[in-house]
Design a protein around this nucleic acid. Structure first.
Lengths: 342, 342
DNA sequence: GTGAAAGCGCTAACAC
DNA sequence: GTGTTAGCGCTTTCAC
């Protein structure tokens, strides 16, 4: 069918090994005479020879390809839907992978479903898994994983320090948000999160919220915690009853967006009646009305760092520390204002 | 090293052929007794057998993977940089590919560099190439392409109707823009494009601009065409001299953004002094100040349609028509206003 | 129903 | 410097 290494060998009057060496083995030990090498190259060009990557991958037991998994409850992350969370993370991952010569593959049924296949079937040299739920099922899957794997967003302790992990400094980021609001004179601040089983990071952020409030001498109790259902269920009731807080920090950008979108429907003005702080600060924050003040999560840097770690593991280098923590930033936009200014 | 099909065969006391059939051959002709099949499945579970995808790909000469190429002058498209052009297109491509069970791979050195490798080295079952330049080099590369390929954004005629292609209705889209401005009372309208060698689509849009202007009885000459250098070189001079047009249609969203960002620096108000219309209308349009009125290019639909076509070609089905044209929309935002309203 | 044999295209190991 | 041999794990063909 297509031209193989043996066809070239025949054409050049050498063995296939020589062809392989000349054409693909850039290694120093290419002990082939220049004359022969030329002949081989000419034959290859003449016949239009092209390396069969599948064959090589098979032979070499490596694919130079990295897979991306996620652990959330949706079928496929979208690059361009509201929050650019996934877009930014992928930019970092792709950038890192390309820098090391790896390709990045997204597979159906591997994003959110049966990641165990990707972990063991030889299709990837390594995996990045972000937002892995801390469940028994996932722990079992990770135990069986036969390729190098790096976690994003999971504290190392959650999987027994078994895998390197990259995470933003959630506590420090929430600290920036609390400090910002307190500086603006807010005392009655809520932390809003979604779902009956909040994510790993939601809980980290919640704990940080409580601690930073206390540290700044602001009273904090269960009343400062706004536990909403999925799809911000309960938010309309909260807003309709006039918010009992003057400011709210949301667990992620999309939730903050719900506040901004629904508040006007209930006559609640942002930021006059309620200051809103988000988490992530992707380009989406600039699209909202008013523009969203938010903790900046360095998603591109997280993706980059994860790949750097992963490539080290793939290449058998020792990695330390196992947990890389990247600090957050804070972007002040228009959804927050001083408490007394009206 | 890892558990192979032969290990399972030995454990179950059958040949590897049977194992293959039981485990992977969902085809109707699985002539294996239930008892044997059970034994095989148990052995597989016991040993923790996992299919080696590389081996199968190699054997089957197919990878269930689709590659994405582009023909522009940048090294790597970004998911989250300003215009969400690439993000939207990829959403459509990934969605389509997943629907058909294909994975999507992005390779270093294949986005913008040496796509010929991807075309012939067996790593992809098919390719999507968007924004392919209409050059002799690219035509030669396409001639040698040994896998199914679908173009996005290239008129079928540009590559001799050799490949199926998906494109938005540029002429109709520009028509919407011209009509909108004329309806607002504008007569002195410019079309702005970038670079010494404008892209295929830039020229299509330019031609459509001239035709629609004429059709609506608005005089149009070379003076209505604003030919800028790369990076909108020359735009500052244009703005500094006070725009000689009352409205401008730009060839793409990023160029419109340059108008919006630079106009204030020269005391030009948008839309009061200059109405600006963009092309693409991704989420970026909502981020700009003022929000950008723009022709909507259905990028997600384009990506989807391209994959549907590609999968047909891969599976050997006849495809007709070879050129799919998807109509544009028009999103009116805040960067345009009537000519007389001030 | 089941198995033996062959081979996809490539490269590592070793012999000469 | 160059060639021979062997085999990666899988599936297809064909014989039984």
């Amino acid at each position: 069918m297509s031209v193989t290494i043996r066809d070239v060998a025949a054409e050049a009057g050498v063995s296939s090994v020589v062809v392989s060496r000349v054409l693909h083995n850039k290694a120093p030990a290419v002990r082939v005479s220049d004359k022969t090498a030329d002949r081989v190259r000419q034959a290859a060009t003449k016949l239009g020879y092209r390396l069969n990557v599948s064959a090589r991958n098979f032979r070499m037991q490596q694919t130079m390809s990295i897979g991306v998994l996620h652990g959330l409850g949706f079928l496929r992350p979208l690059f361009d839907r509201k929050s650019r969370y996934f877009a930014s993370l992928m930019d970092g991952i792709v950038e890192g992978a390309f820098r090391h010569g790896y390709s990045v593959t997204m597979c159906p049924r591997l994003l959110g479903q049966s990641p165990e296949d990707a972990m063991t079937d030889g299709r990837f040299d390594g995996l990045v898994w972000y937002s892995a739920h801390f469940s028994d099922e996932n722990r079992a899957m990770l135990r069986n994983c036969s390729v190098p794997l790096v976690l994003i967003h999971s504290p190392a302790s959650y999987f027994d320090g078994q895998f390197p992990t990259v995470i933003c400094d959630n506590a420090q980021g929430i600290g920036l948000a609390v400090r910002h609001l307190v500086d603006l004179g807010h005392k009655n601040i809520a932390f809003a999160l979604e779902g009956a089983e909040p994510s790993v990071e939601a809980l980290l952020r919640l704990e940080a919220f409580k601690r930073h409030m206390s540290d700044l001498g602001v009273p904090v109790s269960e009343d400062n915690i706004l536990r909403l259902g999925w799809n911000a269920d309960g938010l309309d009731e909260y807003l309709a009853a006039r918010p009992r807080h003057s400011a709210v920090i949301t667990n992620y950008e999309g939730l903050a967006a719900e506040f901004l979108l629904r508040a006007p429907l209930h006559g609640v003005r942002v930021p006059e009646d309620l200051s809103v702080v988000g988490f992530d600060s992707t380009a989406y924050a600039n699209e909202l009305e008013p523009k969203l003040t938010a903790v900046f999560q360095p998603l591109v840097a997280l993706g980059n760092a994860a790949i750097d770690l992963l490539v080290k593991v793939i290449q058998g280098e020792p990695v330390a520390p196992l947990e890389i923590v990247i600090p957050c930033g804070f972007d002040i936009r228009s959804s927050t204002m001083p408490i007394n200014s009206e």
